[in-house]
Simulated assay, not measured.
Amino acid sequence: MSTKEKVRERVSRKESTALNNEIIVYNDDVNTFDHVIATLIRVCNHTPEQAEQCALIVHYNGKCTVKTGPYDKLKPQCTQLLEAGLSAEII
């Protein structure tokens, strides 16, 4: 006779995606790499290396997530990106 044990595990995971939004920057034919990099450093507090990588991703992939967080924190940053002439949106 064999005894079978059923083990039930509770797995909890936080769904942080519902709380975080993303600022997406899109590629355009107007802004230079230097302008995009300087703007990401100033507005999003990127390091120069991070800003350069984001600029390259935008150039080659057409878009890049440059910042994540709650909507109320991202809104002023996205507004500053738009005022600097970048194509950006919060999703």
Score class of each variant (00 low, 15 high):
L81I: 05
E89W: 00
A38N: 10
E5G: 02
K75F: 09
K63D: 12
A51Q: 04
L19K: 09
T39G: 06
V11H: 10
Q53N: 11
P48G: 03
G62V: 06
L82A: 07
K67V: 04
Q80D: 14
I37G: 03
I24W: 11
S2T: 14
A88L: 01
H46Q: 03
Q50V: 01
Y71I: 13
E5F: 05
L74R: 11
C64I: 03
A84W: 02
I90F: 05
I41L: 00
N21G: 07
N27P: 12
G85P: 05
I90P: 04
D29C: 05
V36P: 04
K75N: 09
I24T: 13
T32D: 08
Y60D: 14
L86M: 10
H59N: 13
K67H: 09
I91D: 10
T68C: 10
V30K: 06
V58R: 06
V7T: 15
V11P: 00
A55T: 08
A84C: 07
T47G: 06
Q53E: 12
N61L: 05
T39H: 08
G85K: 09
V58H: 02
G62D: 09
D29T: 14
E15S: 10
K75R: 09
K14I: 14
E89C: 07
E22N: 13
Q50I: 02
E49I: 04
N45A: 13
I57A: 03
S12D: 11
I24E: 10
L40T: 00
A18I: 10
S87Y: 08
E83Y: 00
P70W: 10
T65W: 06
G85W: 05
K6P: 01
L40C: 02
R42P: 00
Y60Q: 11
T47E: 12
V25S: 05
G62M: 06
C64F: 11
E9W: 02
V58I: 15
Q80L: 15
S12V: 15
D34C: 04
E52K: 08
C44T: 00
A88F: 01
E52S: 08
Y60S: 13
L86F: 02
V30M: 04
E22M: 11
I37N: 04
I57Y: 02
L86C: 06
A18R: 11
Q80R: 08
Q77R: 05
R13T: 09
K6I: 13
T47P: 05
S16V: 14
I23G: 03
N31P: 01
R13K: 12
I41K: 15
I23M: 03
V36H: 03
E52F: 03
D29Y: 04
V7D: 03
T47S: 15
K6M: 07
E5Y: 12
C78L: 00
C78F: 00
A55Q: 04
P70G: 04
F33M: 11
N20K: 13
A18K: 14
Y71F: 14
L82E: 15
E9I: 13
P76D: 10
R8E: 14
N20V: 13
T79I: 02
L81M: 07
L86D: 05
Q77D: 11
Q53T: 04
I23C: 04
H35D: 08
T47Q: 07
P70Q: 13
Q50E: 14
L56P: 00
L19E: 04
V30Y: 08
E52T: 08
K67T: 06
E22F: 07
S87L: 11
K63N: 10
S2H: 07
L81P: 10
A38C: 03
K4G: 06
D29S: 12
K4W: 01
I41W: 01
I90T: 06
